[in-house]
Design a binder for these strands. Structure first.
Lengths: 161, 161
DNA sequence: TTAATTCCTCAAGTTAACTTGAGCTCAAGT
DNA sequence: ACTTGAGCTCAAGTTAACTTGAGGAATTAA
């Protein structure tokens, strides 16, 4: 039989850690959160597919851009939980993710371009200001109900400050 | 004397809350963090300047874009802790903040434009990939030392996945 | 066959950014 | 004068995203 026929059954968590820069504990945590689903050996050790490196790299990057694991899980929804991911599947992710990214980019650009004029002129207290986009990003940390950015924008309509 | 001569001594926390959409508890928290410094009445109640609405709106927006309160505090450093903020002062903030914003925008655009090709082709595992920018954003949550995105990029050089 | 690594699970700790609640004071309306 | 709605402080709880540590099993290197 061909020399290079037998492939290892998968990558260990340590190898994945080395390849992605993620701590093993973080990788296990992502598994708990349903972001990655490695196989197990008979003795219970995790074995990852090579494609999981790519998957986890995506998690890392999207996270660095401020997306929550929940956001990322949604973006990844529909991909096969295990096994290689095709180029067309990544393309779909790309399309779905793009609107999110575009919205964020637009907001950043608006802040960048308007910091002078917008903040300087008091526009920030207008509910119509582009920087307050109620439909974008439901950021929440801490507990209990918290209204989202822009939810009470009606209170901001008066521009007397 | 002129009819409208006497101005109220300042805005209460409730008024600030209504105008910014921030919960009073959040506003007090920001004060603890040094982001705003209201005066106090003889009895100890907080009294805000009108300019604090603008200041807090900036906090809200920057936060929504993923900046930490620490980042924002730095951006705000140098502004007078209390009293009105001039247009030129906001312009300075704008300039200082702009490079941060530009870096983020660039990274988002890179991800947006390269999701297909970059992730699809395995470029994500290259340390040279633009999406891994070691100098950008030291995100940390949780405890203990954690290496930053890109710190171990050398482990990612092999592109065999 | 040790000895050293690496891995496993599970519980508990950590940080940021707040919220909630208790207990009390203050201010505003009638 | 009173009652009710704001405010105040301080301690403790919460969520996300992990880390750390204890106690134990499995792999790998020598």
């Amino acid at each position: 039989m061909p020399v290079k026929a037998l492939r290892k059954s998968g990558l260990t968590i340590g190898e994945i850690s080395d390849r992605t820069g993620l701590a093993p504990s973080a990788i296990r945590y992502y598994e708990d959160q349903g972001l990655v689903a490695p196989l197990r050996t008979a003795s219970g050790q995790r074995r990852y597919d090579r494609s999981d490196i790519r998957r986890l790299s995506f998690v890392l990057i999207a996270q660095g851009l401020g997306f929550s694991l929940g956001d990322i899980k949604s973006a990844l929804a529909g991909l096969p939980a295990t096994g290689p991911i095709t180029k067309s599947e990544w393309s779909r992710i790309s399309r779905d993710f793009r609107s999110d990214l575009d919205a964020r980019i637009a907001r950043m650009e608006a802040l960048r371009d308007r910091l002078d004029s917008c903040i300087g002129c008091g526009c920030l207290s207008l509910s119509s200001c582009r920087l307050y986009n109620p439909r974008d990003r439901a950021r929440r940390r801490g507990s209990g109900p918290r209204y989202l950015m822009g939810d009470r924008a009606s209170d901001l309509v008066r521009d007397t400050d």
